[in-house]
Structure formats: structure tokens, C-alpha cells
Design a protein around this nucleic acid. Structure first.
Lengths: 104, 104
DNA sequence: TCATCACATCAAAATTATTCGATTTGATAA
DNA sequence: TTATCAAATCGAATAATTTTGATGTGATGA
């Protein structure tokens, strides 16, 4: 039994061109939202929208510091995504031969 | 320089609840479209639409046999997705310290 | 050939996602 | 307190995705 909606949410992070650009920027280390903004051709509210999706996926984390928020790639969240992808594409040998030992 | 649209397309496969269900069904081995259909609460044309997205992502391949089409998870496509995810979330040590050896 | 079956494609409708300007919130500093 | 700045949220518009019934296509078999 799977919560497919929650799993889909993780991969939403990688489904949009703007978000892939943001991830690319974060690969070189933690960045303030204002730095991200000046490297992208989107408005402040649009950036905020995408940062929310990225943070909800767990792949990115935000760190509030005074007025600023610094974003970075979460090692843990990335690991979860990798393991999830592995699991979603791994062949299920057990049910492959209808051995009946797996319910669904 | 990245083709973000092409990369996003790979992860579209994992962004939708119906497609995750289809992948789960395929994990236990190759399935005919008719078998997928009777295990999902969607119409035939909707299934066809999702199978197209899955095949376009490379994660699923279709094998035509007479009137039927058999779908299965592509080991190669899955590998590509895994490596891509790895690359998108890996820290870029080189630019991290602004050594300048990486253009963008 | 003609009927049938499996699947793809089309066209239109419904639902979601994305975008931006305006506004709000929350923190900082004068 | 008041002004200012960074970021989130709101509201409305637009764009993209998803869905379905109807139809088209291509293979099979009578």
C-alpha cells in the first residue's frame, strides 16, 4: 500500500525547468533567495512559489537568518528521493513469479 | 549548459499518481495494456495517454505483438533516471569554492 | 472482403499548475 | 514607534495537464 501522492510530490521538484535551474544554482552551495532571484528571469513571488514546492519535496531546505532565507540542497532529502526512485523502478522478483507472498 | 526540458521529461513519469500505480504494476513484470486497464480506474484513452508519457520518459518500453502492446520497465531508462537524479542533487565542489574551472 | 479487437489520436471539457502585481507578514534598524 | 527590507501569501489571469467519448488505424480472423 503506497501513498502515491506523497511520492509524486518528491519528484515534482524535478519536473519544472525553473526548479531544475534553481537546483543547479544550489549545487554550488547555499544561496540566499535574493541571489537566486538575480540569476533567474522570474518575479519574487514566482520564486517563492517554486521554493515552496522544492522545500515540500524535501530536496531543498530553507534556513531563516534575520530577514533572509538561505536555501540549500538537503543531503537527507536527496537520499530519500534516490531511494524512492530505486524502489519505484526495481523489479519485484517476488510477485514476478506470482509466489503470493506479497499482498499487493 | 543543460537541456532542462529534456531532464524534466524524465521525472514527469514519477509526478502523477496514475503513473506511479502503473509503474507499481509493471514492477512485477511485463504487462499487456488490457491487464493494466483492468487494474486501474481510468478509461482506455487515459491509459494510452499515460503510457505515452511513461514511454517518452524512457523509463517504460512498449513491445508490440500482434494486436497487443506489452509494457515493461526499462532497466536502461531507469538507470538513466537514477544517474540524472544523482547528478541534479550532487554538490558541485568545484564551483562551491569559486575556483572558476566550471563555466556555469 | 468484412467484422472485430487493441490501441492511438482527436476535440472539448475539466482540473492543476504557473505567473505576476499587490498586499501582508515578520524581522531589523533608525 | 516608524520606516525599510526580504519573503510569503493573495487574487486573478494564463498556460499546461489530465480526462473522457468519439473516431481513426492497423492487425487478426472468419
Amino acid at each position: 500500500m503506497e501513498d502515491y501522492a506523497a511520492e509524486a510530490k518528491v519528484f515534482k521538484a524535478f519536473c519544472d525547468v525553473n526548479r531544475l535551474q534553481i537546483l543547479e544554482l544550489l549545487r554550488s552551495g547555499e544561496k540566499c533567495a535574493c541571489v537566486l532571484l538575480e540569476n533567474l528571469q522570474i518575479s519574487q513571488s514566482t520564486l517563492s512559489y517554486h521554493m515552496k514546492i522544492l522545500c515540500d519535496s524535501g530536496v531543498v531546505v530553507g534556513r531563516a537568518e534575520g530577514k533572509w532565507t538561505h536555501y540549500s540542497i538537503s543531503e537527507q532529502g536527496s537520499q530519500v528521493a534516490r531511494q524512492l526512485l530505486e524502489r519505484l523502478t526495481a523489479k519485484n522478483i517476488c510477485t514476478q513469479y506470482s509466489c503470493g507472498c506479497v499482498k499487493k
